[in-house]
């Protein structure tokens, strides 16, 4: 097993897994505690439009996702906050429009789209160094923004209305948070693909919050769990020659089931058992 680490593709895969873990471990906690899983799923799927855009212009599809997923995040946020369209309806509509645009862009692109499946379901073993650099930059952006705005994000996650009454521009903060989710989606695309992104945005945080009760410790535990799930999934994928993205998701999902069952077992007296996601 150790000898495979000397291959560049394996080194890149591990670095990608680590960067993805940092991004989704931190942002996933906001997604779970603020209960914005659905809009995050919407942003992730709509991001497929960006992949199509990349193919269409002949650039790195992951680079195409950056502007497209941010545009999707902003439009979902603004439409759901400012119009009278119910939030989940607006997200559902923008979700499918993003994906449909992706399909059209791919169809309009010259030639074949050979790696399309990898962008949909992840292909961590084929991450080029250029994408690693992009992922690194985005991870630094995500960490810096969270570091400077954590108290604001915590306040709008806990009670957005109260923050508004304090005179805080909660809508703008919410949009910034959605943009961070969009950037996290970009970081995760190579690892699990747009379809499976939501697994890493929710499962590690959902497990962590069962065991610890401050945002910071949940984030640290999520990053750690995410790293275990991605490398574990990678190992299973290598050992059994099965798709890596799906293996990562199955490892995460299994871990979630086991943790939830352990929590649900008749606990010792005085032990806290209730949790919700």
């Amino acid at each position: 097993m150790i000898e495979i680490l000397q291959y560049e593709f394996m080194q890149n895969a591990l670095i990608a897994a680590l960067l993805a873990s940092i991004a989704c471990g931190i942002i996933g906690v906001y997604v779970v505690v603020k209960r914005i899983v659905f809009i995050s799923g919407g942003i992730a799927h709509a991001a497929f439009g960006g992949i199509g855009l990349g193919y269409f212009f002949g650039i790195d599809p992951v680079l195409g996702v950056v502007p497209f997923s941010i545009a999707a995040a902003l439009s979902m946020g603004i439409v759901s906050k400012r119009t009278r369209i119910p939030e989940d309806t607006a997200i559902g509509i923008l979700w499918v429009i993003g994906m449909a645009l992706g399909v059209i862009f791919v169809a309009l692109s010259p030639g074949y789209a050979p790696e399309l499946f990898g962008y949909l379901f992840g292909s961590i073993l084929t991450v080029p160094t250029s994408d690693i650099i992009l992922m690194l930059i985005l991870a630094v952006v995500i960490i810096s923004v969270v570091f400077s705005l954590h108290k604001e994000f915590q306040a709008i996650s806990f009670d957005e209305e109260f923050a508004t009454t304090l005179g805080v521009n909660t809508e703008r903060l919410y949009l910034v948070l959605l943009c961070l989710i969009a950037l996290t989606v970009v970081v995760l695309i190579r690892v699990v693909g747009v379809i499976l992104v939501i697994a890493l945005l929710t499962i590690p945080a959902a497990i962590s919050r069962q065991f610890t009760h401050t945002m910071k410790s949940i984030m640290l535990l999520s990053v750690f769990l995410c790293a275990i799930f991605t490398t574990g999934g990678l190992w299973f994928s290598y050992a059994f020659d099965l798709p890596s993205g799906a293996m990562i998701v199955l490892v995460s999902g299994t871990a979630f089931l086991i943790c939830s069952l352990l929590k649900a077992l008749p606990a010792k007296k005085g032990m806290h058992t209730g949790f919700s996601i």
């Binding site: 209960r35 604001e152 996650s157 009670d159």
Partner: peptide, 22 residues
């Protein structure tokens, strides 16, 4: 209206009232 499972301690909830002063 509050999510009773929210991971935050009492001090940090109170501090949210200082958001605009901080």
């Amino acid at each position: 209206l509050f999510d009773r499972e929210f991971p935050v301690n009492v001090l940090n909830v109170v501090l949210m009232g200082r958001l605009k002063h901080a």
